[in-house]
């Protein structure tokens, strides 16, 4: 655990504290290398690549776009709700979102 977190701090994007989950989704769904994945997400968010891992910028963006926040703020998208917005923002299919739509009869 401590070792994994060491890597996350030394080299990681920062997960939901920043935009790490979004960049990860582009690598996973489109097989994009890190440069391409970051540029894609930065373009969608309208920020520079450096700001993707800048907590101060990413925090505001996540709140503004309602993409899920790490803090307990009432009234904001959580879990599945946030993933609906992430799929739409990135233009990708998220399997669990697709399942939700089918099973909820939406």
């Amino acid at each position: 655990m401590g070792m994994a977190i060491t890597h996350a701090i030394a080299s990681g994007m920062g997960g939901m504290r920043t935009t790490g989950d979004l960049v990860a989704r582009m690598q996973m769904t489109k097989g994009m290398k890190i440069k391409e994945a970051k540029e894609y997400v930065a373009n969608k968010l309208g920020v520079s690549v450096v700001d993707l891992a800048n907590e101060a910028v990413a925090r505001e963006l996540r709140e503004e776009l309602n993409l899920g926040l790490v803090h307990e703020l009432d009234g904001y998208a959580k879990g599945m709700e946030a993933k609906f917005r992430i799929a739409k923002l990135l233009g990708i299919e998220i399997k669990s979102v697709k399942n939700f739509i089918e099973r909820a009869g939406l």
Partner: peptide
């Protein structure tokens, strides 16, 4: 800054 990567 700017060289961060995804962790799995």
């Amino acid at each position: 800054p700017g060289n961060e990567v995804v962790v799995t």
